[in-house]
Nucleic acid binder design. Structure first.
Length: 470
DNA sequence: ATGTCC
């Protein structure tokens, strides 16, 4: 794939073949994937989607994914036949991050670390197929899908303020639980309040560095503060919805007269029965994912309260796998777009009307989970940028899970983590090896490049004190 | 990511 270096942090793929727009990769030379890596071909493939506008974008943490690269952003013009593609959201619909700040300092944590991590380990269901903190009835699940974290608060989980400190106020408005298949409902019923596996985690962290004191203050963060970060998604329910709708769209492509370079980019016009069905089910999965993180956060707060007498306050909750109908200016005109973000995070600029009053002037908090044993970051949205207010989502893999398992000794890795002062509560040896830091890019470099590319501003760097691994 | 193949 031919890349043109436009600036030190921006590379371009000229339109060729079926591409309707250019590809734009935000990266440094060091973070770019290898030339023969499939993810750059995927950026070009996405540029061929019907109705795409602007460019097919990739963030500095990009790597190979299903159809779209992970770290991909693509917007289609709804009124010009623009499509929605489940592969542009991914299998873990509305996977995201929740950050809570403890009324506790790093210097006070050491003596209670084992006690707190044991409590969090007990309170946090995790591993493939496992659940759940909150056992719902089928009617309860349907309300959760429609109302997200609002329903959790109504049923006594957490407080009203939690909703204000969430993207979309704790729930997306256009969920249609009726579009969710019986199989997806079955899979989701017993998993509300569970981490899952893979790169999902619950970590106790400390604020290690502040890059912007004003924004950190607005987000309620100060140096040395203990935090809890939760990274998880919509579990089996979201996975099943993606599976269902990829199949349905694969079958309806010809009826819509659509063709794409890769079958994994199966899609349908946003304004079609198949498109609307996917978006309604996807939104229901988004509400499930937010409520999942919400109840895990409440459970973590109870553990901390019991072990230390101190509480947890929500900083923010934000997703990095979602498609949204948004209004943006393209070519001097306001247009209704379907913005796909897959392994990319919305980053609204200061003053944006969707931000709650307490955060309006600061810009949207963006939460970046690092790989296991490495730093995580808090960023903020900025004015300008040209990827529809989006930035990166994490470290980004350099090795496949298979490669990592082959080359990494889980027992040695655990010893190294514990030696560096991180308390580890794992789920499986294989899971630990898959998530070794050496299988990931350097998250500090990723966020520095995202800032350098004008996509966001760095606010704070957090380091892990203990990890409950999915 | 995922009851890692209904």
């Amino acid at each position: 794939m031919e890349l043109v270096e436009e600036t030190p942090f921006r590379f371009r793929i000229e339109p060729h073949g079926a591409m309707r727009v250019p590809g734009v990769v935000f990266a440094s030379r060091r973070l770019l994937p290898p030339k023969d890596d499939g993810s750059l071909v995927q950026v070009a493939n996405v540029a061929a989607l019907p109705g795409i506008v602007g460019a097919s974008y990739a963030m500095p943490d990009m790597h190979w994914g299903y159809g779209f690269p992970i770290g991909g952003v693509a917007a289609t013009d709804v009124r010009a036949g623009g499509v929605v593609s489940p592969g542009g959201v991914g299998f873990d619909i509305s996977c995201g991050v929740r950050l809570l700040a403890a009324d506790l300092e790093r210097s006070d944590f050491h003596r209670v670390a084992e006690k707190v991590l044991n409590g969090l380990s007990r309170a946090t269901p995790r591993g493939a197929g496992r659940g759940a903190v909150w056992q719902l009835s089928r009617d309860g699940l349907e309300r959760l899908l429609a109302e997200g974290s609002h329903y959790a608060v109504e049923r006594g989980w957490g407080v009203q303020r939690d909703l204000e400190r969430c993207e979309d106020g704790g729930a997306v408005a256009d969920a249609e639980p009726g579009r969710v298949s019986a199989r997806a409902l079955d899979r989701g019923l017993g998993q509300v309040g569970s981490l899952g596996s893979g790169n999902h985690f619950l970590e106790v962290q400390a604020v290690d560095e502040i890059y912007d004191e004003v924004l950190a203050g607005a987000f309620g963060l100060h140096p040395g503060q203990v935090c809890v970060m939760i990274h998880c998604g919509s579990r089996g329910l979201g996975h099943q919805i993606c599976t269902d709708h990829v199949r349905r769209m694969d079958e309806s492509m010809a009826d819509h007269g659509l063709s794409v370079p890769d079958r994994q980019l199966a899609c349908a016009p946003v304004d079609s029965a198949a498109g609307r069905a996917y978006l309604g089910a996807m939104a229901a999965a988004a509400n499930y994912a937010r409520a999942n993180r919400h109840v895990l956060g409440v459970a973590a707060g109870e553990v901390l309260r019991e072990a230390t007498g101190r509480g947890l306050d929500l900083v923010y909750d934000i997703s990095h796998n979602l498609a949204k109908i948004e209004t943006h200016e393209v070519g001097g005109q306001r247009r209704t777009l379907c913005v796909h973000r897959k392994g990319a995070t919305r980053a609204l600029p200061p003053g944006h009307p969707e931000l709650p009053p307490g955060l309006r002037e600061a810009g949207q908090p963006v939460l970046i989970p690092g790989s296991m044993g490495t730093a995580s970051h808090v960023l903020a949205g900025v004015a300008g940028g040209d990827a529809f207010h989006s930035t990166c989502h994490g470290a980004g893999r350099t090795q496949s899970r298979h490669q990592a398992v082959r080359t990494i000794d889980a027992r040695q890795l655990r010893r190294e983590l514990e030696h560096s002062g991180i308390v580890v509560r794992g789920s499986s040896a294989r899971g630990l090896a898959e998530e070794a830091p050496t299988a990931y890019k350097d998250v500090d470099a990723v966020v520095a490049v995202a800032e350098g590319a004008g996509l966001c501003r760095r606010v704070a760097r957090l380091v892990p004190l203990g990890v409950v691994k999915g």
